[in-house]
């Protein structure tokens, strides 16, 4: 019997990042199981410690990306577990589902207060695959189980989406800064609202938002695609680029972890902390 924490990766019809996401969770010292959208009983019986909603195009992005997935019965379970404090991460389409379910920013239970609109910024609209740099908000670093190990260096990760521009029904800057988790910046950590540093026109350069407690995080970039050092492009500038290039032709490149691993290591670290506190 293993006592590793169990992370449930939810497969919606049209998800397409579930396998690599489950794989990096396991590589981070936790267990991962993939549950199909209609395996409600199996999911609830296995009592997962955390949930990840992976990337993809659930329900064909019908109505709005994530809108139909958010209404699936399985999301009721996720909703209640999130309110009870369990860590929940939505990546890309998973983030869109979390926003559409009202879990983030979660100012009022279940009310949809934000949306992920179509990319639109002077310089480039439409679907975009690109590497960007992220910075975590100070408060988020402290409270979110997904971000505790991120640190202050800007981290390179890729985005791949057509609808990733955070917008809010009410532009209440105080409340929004409270839910700020991740923002786009350049390799030196400088934020600007211009393309390509902000790749999609997102409000306040937001790449990820969380609920007030920080246990639910919705992020557009794909940390599972920056989990290994060898996934980083050879042209990435900055310190991560230095680290990656110093491993050119080095067998150690195969096992070296990249910046995306920090998100999953944060979660593993959070569970270790909890289990120490329990003892």
């Amino acid at each position: 019997m293993t006592n590793k924490p169990l992370v449930a990766v939810l497969q919606f019809p049209g998800s397409n990042c579930e396998y690599e996401t489950a794989s990096v969770v396991r590589e981070s010292g936790m267990d991962a199981m993939i549950f199909r959208w209609n395996q409600l009983k199996e999911l609830s019986d296995s009592r997962p410690d955390a949930f990840i909603l992976p990337g993809g195009f659930s329900f064909q992005d019908r109505v709005r990306a994530g809108a139909v997935g958010a209404k699936e019965e399985i999301m009721d379970l996720v909703f209640n577990e999130a309110l009870s404090g369990k860590p929940v991460l939505g990546i890309c389409n998973g983030a869109q589902i979390l926003v559409e379910s009202g879990l983030v920013p979660g100012w009022e239970n279940g009310r949809i207060e934000s949306a992920l609109a179509a990319n639109h910024i002077h310089g480039r609209s439409g679907y975009l695959s690109r590497w960007v740099f992220l910075r975590a908000n100070e408060r988020a670093l402290k409270i979110s189980p997904w971000l505790r190990m991120i640190g202050n260096d800007p981290i390179p990760v890729p985005i791949a989406h057509a609808e990733g521009r955070f917008v809010f029904a009410e532009k209440d800057n105080n409340r929004i800064s409270e839910c700020m988790a991740l923002t786009y910046c350049d390799e030196n950590g400088i934020e600007t609202a211009d393309y390509p540093v902000n790749p999609n026109g997102s409000f306040m350069n937001l790449a990820g938002i969380m609920n007030r407690e920080g246990n639910v995080l919705a992020m557009m970039p794909h940390p599972e695609r920056a989990f290994w050092m060898w996934q980083i492009p050879p042209w990435i500038p900055g310190t991560w680029g230095d680290r990656r290039n110093s491993l050119q032709h080095d067998p150690a490149l195969a096992g070296s972890k990249g910046p995306g691993a920090l998100f999953f290591r944060s979660l593993a670290d959070y569970f270790e902390l909890i289990s120490r506190e329990d003892q």
């Binding site: 990042c17 690599e20 480039r124 439409g126 695959s129 695609r225 050879p234």
Partner: peptide
């Protein structure tokens, strides 16, 4: 052209187009 394509889904890509 490539900026429209997802070259990294599945998490197995080492060199993307153009690198």
């Amino acid at each position: 052209i490539w900026s429209y394509y997802d070259s990294e889904v599945q998490g197995t890509t080492h060199f993307r187009p153009g690198e």
